[in-house]
Design a binder for these strands. Sequence first.
RNA 1: GCUGAAGUAGCUCAGUGGUAGAGCAGCUGAUUCGUAAUCAGCAGGUCGUGGGUUCAACUCCCACCUUCAGCUCCA
Length: 640
Amino acid sequence: MTTIAIKFPDGNTREYPKGVSGLDIAKSISNGLLREALAVEVNGEVWDLSRAINTDAQVRILKWNDIGGKDTYWHSTAHLMAEAVESIFPGAKFGVGPSIDAGFYYDIDLGGHTLSPEDLSKIEQKMLELAKGDSQIVREEKNWEDAITYFKKKNDSYKLELLDELKGQIITFYHSGKFTDLCAGPHLPSIGKVKAIKLLSVAGAYWRGDEKNKMLQRIYGISFPTQKELDEYLFRIEEAKRRDHRKLGKELDLFVFHDIAPGAPFWLPNGMIVFRELEKFLRYELDGSGYQEISTPILVKKELWEQSGHWDHYKENMFYFEHDDATFSLKPMNCPESTYVYRHRMRSYKDLPLRYSEIGRLHRNEISGALGGMFRVRQITMDDAHIYCRPDQILDEINSLILLVERFYSIFGLKPEYNLSTRPEGAMGDPKLWEEAESGLMKALEHNKIKYNLKPKDGAFYGPKIDVQIQDALGREWQIATIQLDFVMLPERFELEYVAEDGSRKRPVAIHRAIFGSFERFMGIITEHFSGSFPTWLSPHQTIVLPITDSHIEYAGKVYQALKNAGVRVELDDRNEKVNYKIREWEMKKASYMLVVGDKECNSNAVSVRQHKKGDIGVMPLDKFVDKILEEINLKTLTI
RNA sequence: GCUGAAGUAGCUCAGUGGUAGAGCAGCUGAUUCGUAAUCAGCAGGUCGUGGGUUCAACUCCCACCUUCAGCUCCA
């Protein structure tokens, strides 16, 4: 019998007979591992545990905590769901059914039937029933012609279309129970490992993501090895919904939306306090970083967009109308207009870099289905800036931009994820310039020890970019900051020039950048990030003074005035209510501090301090509290 | 834009063809109170909008608007 050498992650190597399976290997190590094993990684590829290994290999047994393990688990659950759907709705046709970050989905064509919530629970029940049967999941290799014959017989046009692209390759089928699917795998050895299942939602999804194709019904679900883990997951989802900015925005009177202005918020006084603090912080930082603030018109003639290229490429996202024989549009971006500031006089190489910042109000006609709370609006307040510099200044500028971004996010305790996008197909400009720029961006990121994901060919048509992404409460990703190099759109199309040292005319490079992305989206993100409990510097209610009875109102007024004079946002709650009542109310409004004042405090010039989420933190002299809160505000201390 | 779901008092929600309901918030009064809800009373609605069916529509039908989930798009 021939043997093969299996190398493990810890570096050990063991001999096994040729054709050994992951299952055999797990069993040879321990029963515990056998129980937990879901899949096996063979030379970096995830395989079925039951698949025979015929050559020397680097092997790792994948468990629930491994991404490959979870993927396999969820993918198999998707097949289980398909089996249940097929048994309840005979003749159902299946699109694709992969695992996703959290769970799985399957796209299904049920002819005329629309799935209802009742159908989902019926399918769920059926799945649990089938899982108990613990049928084996069997992998089968087929040649292409046989695969075609199978799905022709089943009349499944979707699978036939998928097969079309796999012509000539070895096709794999997976059989689980009565369900057979075209699938690359891998899968669990048997379906009984799936113990707890929840089908979450059903939504339309175009076949292959193309709106010209038929819309299939997509069922989303998730599964776990134990009911406890499922319950915990569902609880986390509920938690996330509780911190949804749309809910908190309403509860905390930050902003509201109204039918009368779809996709545009009405900022309420409390929301405007946060907005203004963000603006103040931004302006302070930019003033210290060599920026000059500009403001350009919201309503401009379409000729501008023709010149910038937006009229050709972005018109469907723009609002425009006729007036006095001209077409006017609301600006969807600030960049083209910033060139008018650059061009308003002759620029010397000594003037560069010119850093123009603009808090600009933009309007973009997002399609109705894309709108969503503050995360996707039609009216956007952008913290934009355009830096015009010489090519030899790019690296320095990018470097300081990265530092700026890092500093901003650390203030909020946000952990951003960086993406570097490179030259797309059909990009404009000299490829050599692109390469230099891309490696410049990489160098700047690496210099600052920043990890990033490379997104090849995902850059703008005019230059490469660094995007910063962040996840919302529900795990959806949103882009916030962006740093984009531009050799073409602004410099070329608007014929920007500077006079070089030798008197010749040269073309500057433009850098487009935003840090918050937009005030709206950023507001949504930090509302969820802080669950509405903003750090004191941002908090709409920094301090509330609570006199216990009418006899303490006079002293409470002094406390109020002292804080007011110190520049703290303070409110005096002298309503005729019990202290408990007021505390509950302000706690729900997430006020940072409450100062309870009664006889004791009146007599000693003190305040009894209650901090949001922490409760009573004791009595302290009024002066000391003023110092404490001012320090917290000035240092922008994180209070979560 | 597409598929599905939803829209009832300021908010959260009940109400399956026969006189629109609750809790909270609001207002008035009483209560003067030490770290998450004091009590009582009052007021509050063109049931998203517009049509239709019916003796009668919040309820059934049609169209539209908005929101939500997802798809798609994102210079």
